[in-house]
Write a protein that binds this DNA or RNA. Sequence first.
DNA 1: CCTATTGGTAAGCAGTAACTTACGGTAAGT
DNA 2: ACTTACCGTAAGTTACTGCTTACCAATAGG
Lengths: 107, 107
Amino acid sequence: MAYGEALTALADPTRRSVFEQLIGGARSVGEIASDLPVSRPAVSQHLRVLKEAGLIGERRVGTRRYYSLRRDGLVELRNYVEGFWEEALASFKAAAERGDKDEASDG
Amino acid sequence: MAYGEALTALADPTRRSVFEQLIGGARSVGEIASDLPVSRPAVSQHLRVLKEAGLIGERRVGTRRYYSLRRDGLVELRNYVEGFWEEALASFKAAAERGDKDEASDG
DNA sequence: CCTATTGGTAAGCAGTAACTTACGGTAAGT
DNA sequence: ACTTACCGTAAGTTACTGCTTACCAATAGG
């Protein structure tokens, strides 16, 4: 059920940029913000959403906080996508074998 | 780049319900709405967003319109998820081999 | 200590998103 | 033709979201 929060978190373009910055590895808040056209507090807020969605984690060193992707969160999101992907494929196949033109899978 | 619209489309819970109803196959607007706690026009609006995101297609028969998932849209979304999944895995592995504790992949 | 660095939180604001009701438009049935 | 069923669109309202500025807490270093 947590994939809902994950999808919501990744819906916003800015927040998705934050997320994608972390694909390569951990980064501090300042580093992340320096690559974005919004203020640092805005980045903090985005990080909070991503964290509550389980997509990222935090590690403190000194006054800095390094954020990085959480494997569990990614797995959950991936499982959701793979899940309906498999189901949809099965539906497509079943419809095709019935000769249905219902499906707009070709459109 | 269209995965952005797809993620935005799937972010809303009601719209995600609409989407998930279509996994099993094509449905008419009325059928979809009857399983949801919102009005039919609201469903129409959600369908439009999903359609513009490339996730669903439409087929008209009589006065009814059957909506169903579009394979291409699903592929795009799946590719996005698989993409950062692979990259993230590589990053995790590299970090682990460096002995980094940067990554919060375990948290 | 005092200051600088780093970053989270609060308050406020503007934009947008989701919903409703009301209406229009098309196809099927009588 | 008239009615019914089905559905999209328009207009308006409410609520939320993302942003900014201002402020505060914690650590590091002189």
